[in-house]
């Protein structure tokens, strides 16, 4: 399963980004292969309806779960419809800490 985590930089030791759809980077973590990938979020500064567009982008990348500290209502609705599981995490966690949780 590939998990998407909003990240404030492209390093594992940074905190997750408070904003889901407007985060700086997305960290894609593959729980089977342990592969970690950081992708720039091109929707960060889009004007309107960022949430649904980001979900569409993530779903296109084969994501099946999202770990975030907050998800907007429009994005959440579509995540639910696409059966992408959302887990709400604490705000002060690093990407590494979330990966550790996923591994255990």
């Amino acid at each position: 399963m590939i998990v998407a985590i909003p990240s404030s930089t492209d390093k594992k030791d940074t905190l997750i980004d408070d904003r889901f759809a407007r985060c700086a980077f997305f960290c894609f973590y593959n729980t089977e292969t342990k592969d970690i990938q950081f992708i720039v979020n091109n929707f960060k500064n889009a004007t309107e309806g960022v949430g649904p567009q980001v979900v569409e982008f993530l779903a296109g990348k084969g994501i099946s779960a999202v770990y975030a500290s907050e998800v907007g209502p429009k994005a959440q609705k579509i995540l639910d419809k696409l059966n992408i599981r959302t887990t709400i995490t604490g705000k002060k966690q690093t990407i590494q800490q979330i990966i550790n949780q996923l591994d255990n």
Binding site: A46, E48, G49, P52, Q53, V55, E56, A59, G60, I78, L82
Partner: peptide, 10 residues
């Protein structure tokens, strides 16, 4: 208005 969400594989 980016109001249409489309995922052909799904």
């Amino acid at each position: 208005y980016n109001a249409i969400i489309m995922l052909p594989p799904a």
